[in-house]
Structure formats: C-alpha cells, structure tokens
Design a binder for these strands. Structure first.
Lengths: 208, 208
DNA sequence: TAACCTACCAAACACTTGTTAGGGAAGGAG
DNA sequence: CTCCTTCCCTAACAAGTGTTTGGTAGGTTA
C-alpha cells in the first residue's frame, strides 16, 4: 500500500522533478516553521523567490504540496522500517534498529517529520489523507508486536501496560523532531544510543 | 511574573465570568481539535450555539481567547509546580511530584495542554506571547536543576547528557496530551506511576 | 410603568485566502 | 530564424476571514 505518492495525481505538471523537489523542500521548511494552515502560498512563493501564482505551474494545489511532502517521507520511512522488520532480528535488536532508523529519518527529513507530528492527527479525518492513519496503524502494529515479542521472550518487563509502553517509546523518539537540529553536537546515532539507554534500562528485564 | 493573564487587557468586556469560562472551554475544545489557525470564529460560535459576531461581546478578539486559555493554564500549572519546588523534597521525589502534577494538569486542562503543545513554538516569536517562552525557560530551569541535583546526589545516572535527559523526560510527559482521554482506563496518577517507573529505571543509578 | 443591563442577532466591512487565465522572456533544437 | 519547452509574472477572481456597528428580546431593578 505504499502507492500513496503517485496515485490520483489527476494531471501531472510539466516542471522538472529537480525543481519540484527544490520547491517542496522550501515549502516543507515553511510548513514546519509556521504550521500548514498558517502558511499562505504567498509565503512559500516568497521563500522561493517568486510569486504565488507561479507555484501552480509546478503543483496542483497547496494541499498537493503537503501531500507529496508527507507521502514522500512515509514511503522512505517504511522502506527502512520494512528492511529492519524483515531482517529476522530479536525483539531488543529490532527495537534498537527501529529507534536508530527513526532518528536518522528525523535527521534527513526534519521538516517533514515536524509537519507530520503537528498535522497528521486532524488531517487523518480528511479522506484524501487516509493513508496517514493506515501508516499509523501499521506503525502501531510493528512496534506493539516487537514489544510483545520482547515480553514473552523475557527481555522486556511484563508488569507494564504494553500499549502505554508503545506510546511512551513512540513519543520519546518522534517528539525529538521538535528540538533536533541537523549538524548539532550529537549525531542521530549518538542521540539514538542515549535514548535507547534511557528507555531500555526501564523496559529491559533486570536480573539481580 | 504570573501577571500574564490580567495584564494589558485594554478594555474589559461586560459579560459574567461564568459565561466567559463556558465559552473559553468550548473554544479550547475547538482549538485543540482543529488547530488555532484552522479554527474560524464562526466554528467556535457554532459550537457555542450563537453567531460569530456575538463572541465579541465577551472577548476582544480571537487571539485574546487563545491568550486567556493559555495563560490561565500556565498560571494554574505554575501554582502547583511552585508548591512542589518549594516543598524541600529530594531530587527523585521532586521529579516524581512534578511528573504526577503534570499528568493531573493534562487530566484537568487537556484542551489547553494540547493547544500549548501545538502552537506555543511559533507563538513564542510573537511579542504578545512572550510569556510562553518565559514560562518555558522557567520550566527548563526547574527540571534541569532537579536533574542536576539528582546527578550530584547520585540518584540519577551521570553518564547521560543532562539536557538530552531533560528533553526526554519533558517530552514523554507532555506528549501524553495527544492521546490521553479523561475518564479512560487509567487515572492520571496511574499513568504517572507507570511513566515514572519506565523513566526512572533508566535514569536512576543501578547498584548491582 | 420606566429605565437599565445582559446576551445575543443581523448585516455588513475591509482584508486575506487559494486559485486561475493569459502572456512573455529565455534558451535549446530543428 | 523559427518552433517549442520551461519557467515565471501580471492581474484578477470568488470565497472565506476576523471584526464592527446598530439593534433588540428578556429579565432585573426602581
């Protein structure tokens, strides 16, 4: 079901993919900084050094820009997640790999992640963005499954509400997008390492 | 500095405080569900069973509604935080109390917390909402201080970046507002207990 | 009864919003 | 040179935005 990006684009625009990508990156930056609804197409055009109407040579609508940003991000994320989930790792190693990949994704697609964090909830009600809730369900399935596998394998604590633990882990990872800045003191891998250290020493079963 | 709520209200409106509070609760609900910018005054009026213009009998502007919601929430939050911080507790007990109070606040003012989470970042740039960044700085000071006290007292691990730990704890607590629903399976105290269990077993120093 | 206050409605205002239509400059291909 | 494609501008549009102004129904007070 990752056909979300290239389906129902009723009329393909005429611009080169490179220019589209440039403009999408700019738009994503403005969306992330100001919020989608607070961002006018004139602000995007300003940041791109052109006028509002010119954007419609490249894109069908403001919403289609958001759509392309989010679905592009999700497609790439799931490519990496699926690779991890299909590698046949143990529950603890799976969780470590998922967390690390998440922070790498934050590092690469910071703007898209920030937008997703802010807008996905109320966008999910819109039928055009149904793939957002599909992705979120798949997301929950993957993480919950990993956690439950770890509980039965006695590598994660059994005295915690699994769903609560899921939300805990999920949130701790993704809200990092609200303060993370690429090129800062810590690499994504270093942040992942410390986050995992904090999370796991609380989730892993202690034998002493 | 908690004079944020009743300063510079240039012209006091004439309605009773009870009705104001009712309408503010309704507005907060809509703001939280749809986002501030996506919420039109007509939608608020709709939810309140009246027309858009009638809101201006009670409030000066749409922004002043948001202002009152946020500052009211922050005032109450800081009243409780200050009580905790002034109680002379140890670092671990302080952290436990702060987390518990935070979840209670989420339980009481869910809508306001959700709005704060979504909008405070880009509202902080607006000079009228400068008290948001002031509060955030005070917030950081209180939590960072507690964590550092705990590190020197050897009740928290010393091998972690304190600022990273701060963001970790802060985020894990407050993002709960995005999924928490009052009257659900878990009471705020129960959620706080489990969250603290997860967080502390990773932050507390292990002696074995 | 008369004056008054609270809470709302009706109707419009100036402005911003996303979007469209037609045109034109630049450059490569034939 | 001419054709064609790419990319952007100018100028406007209809719809929706926050807000204002004047009026009015109903209850309370005198």
């Amino acid at each position: 079901m990752p056909k979300s990006s290239d389906s129902d684009h009723k009329k393909t625009t005429v611009s080169t993919p490179e220019r589209r990508e440039e403009l999408l990156a700019i738009a994503a930056e403005v969306f992330a900084a100001q919020g989608y609804n607070a961002t006018t197409v004139r602000k995007i055009a300003d940041a791109a050094g052109m006028l509002a109407g010119s954007l419609y040579y490249h894109f069908d609508s403001k919403e289609s820009m958001l759509d392309e940003i989010l679905s592009g991000f999700l497609d790439e994320l799931w490519a990496r997640y699926d690779a991890v989930l299909g590698a046949g790792l143990g529950p603890r190693e799976t969780l470590e790999a998922l967390v690390t990949e998440s922070f790498r994704e934050i590092d690469r697609h910071l703007a898209a992640v920030a937008i997703y964090q802010k807008e996905s909830k109320h966008l999910g009600t819109q039928p055009h963005f149904a793939y957002l809730v599909e992705s979120q369900q798949k997301f929950e399935k993957a993480w919950l499954g990993t956690l439950e596998r770890g509980v039965t394998a006695k590598v994660f604590r059994a005295d915690l509400d699994v769903r609560l633990t899921y939300r805990f882990v999920r949130d701790t990872v993704w809200v990092a997008a609200s303060w993370y800045r690429p090129g800062g003191r810590h690499s994504p891998e270093e942040i992942a390492r410390q986050y995992l250290s904090m999370v796991l020493e609380g989730i892993a079963l202690h034998d002493s």
